[in-house]
């Protein structure tokens, strides 16, 4: 992240700073150059000028896709937060054994490809899938519920995939909260709920913030899951970019969209950076 790069810069002639050189070279060749190339195309293909950006904001559908992308990402982030906070809390305060099991449960999805997981969800959620067969079999519903190929499908799949990115930062921050602080709050007259509200919650917020940022940014750029589980009529920007580049071979427009997505992401990071220290939120230490 931005803060990480700043930290690594060779301040006060730290000779160990040279060790970041390979990483910087790698980034320059495989990240900065393609980024430049994309930037270039967005302003040069098919003609030099701002026509792609003008076309994007002039086209109702595209603007709606952008807003839709932001809306879905926000929804996914909120739901992740809602699930992840109590999960991380239990993990941080359970016995070491239980915490280990919970940690593995949240990490297992990391060990298989996104594509595999997404198709697995499609199998589970489709009209003839596991859930609907079960509900129909039990006579709880008369016709299959539409769980996939819509917003619900996207949200279920995305929340599952992105959950670790929310749980882990919250867990890390919660682990660092001194248990005596809650005891002290109780000792000073706070009921358990009050102690949570006044002491624990504010101290755990940096983790929530870090997790939300990760999940939101990752959601913005998602492609596979909305493509497989989502409603094609409610596409997210990632899907539209792929269509532009792969189907329409309109590289200029695709690049312009990617650039807009990048700018939106940077804007969000910039706003977030004003609220809290991003380095702090990701566990980086800042000394006074």
């Amino acid at each position: 992240m931005a803060a990480g790069l700043r930290k690594a810069s060779p301040r006060r002639g730290n000779r160990w700073a040279w060790f970041v050189l390979p990483a910087l070279l790698f980034l320059a060749v495989f990240f900065v150059y393609p980024l430049y190339e994309m930037l270039n195309r967005s302003f040069t293909e098919p003609d030099v000028g701002l026509q792609n950006n003008v076309a994007f904001f002039g086209t109702d559908v595209y603007v709606r896709v952008l807003i839709n992308t932001l809306r879905i990402s926000f929804l996914i982030t909120a739901i992740c937060m809602l699930f992840a906070y109590p999960y991380a809390y239990i993990m941080a305060h359970a016995s070491r054994r239980t915490a280990g099991v919970l940690l593995i449960a949240v990490l297992v999805p990391f060990w298989s490809s996104i594509l595999v997981r997404t198709y697995a969800w499609a199998v589970i959620l489709q009209d003839t899938g596991l859930i609907n067969s079960l509900l129909l079999g039990l006579g709880l519903v008369d016709e299959p519920l539409s769980l996939v190929r819509n917003l619900l499908g996207t949200v279920i799949g995305m929340v599952h995939i992105l959950m670790p990115f929310m749980v882990l930062p919250i867990y890390a921050v919660m682990k660092g909260i001194d248990t005596n602080l809650v005891k002290a709050a109780a000792n000073l007259g706070s009921s358990p709920l009050d102690a949570f509200r006044r002491v624990y919650l504010p101290l755990s917020l940096p983790g929530v913030f870090a997790g939300s940022l990760l999940v939101f940014v990752l959601s913005l750029g998602s492609y596979v899951t909305p493509a497989v589980l989502g409603n094609p009529d409610q596409a997210m920007l990632g899907q539209v970019i792929v269509t532009q580049v792969q189907s329409l071979l309109n590289w200029g427009m695709g690049a312009a969209m990617a650039l807009i997505l990048l700018l939106v992401t940077l804007l969000i990071l910039a706003i977030a950076g004003r609220i809290v220290n991003i380095g702090d939120a990701f566990g980086g230490r800042t000394t006074d």
């Binding site: 001194d178 005596n180 602080l181 005891k183 002290a184 000792n187 002491v199 504010p202 101290l203």
Partner: peptide, 13 residues
Amino acid sequence: IGMVFQNYALFPH
């Protein structure tokens, strides 16, 4: 009952 903890337990925020 007032209590003073070994590690002070001051609210850092």
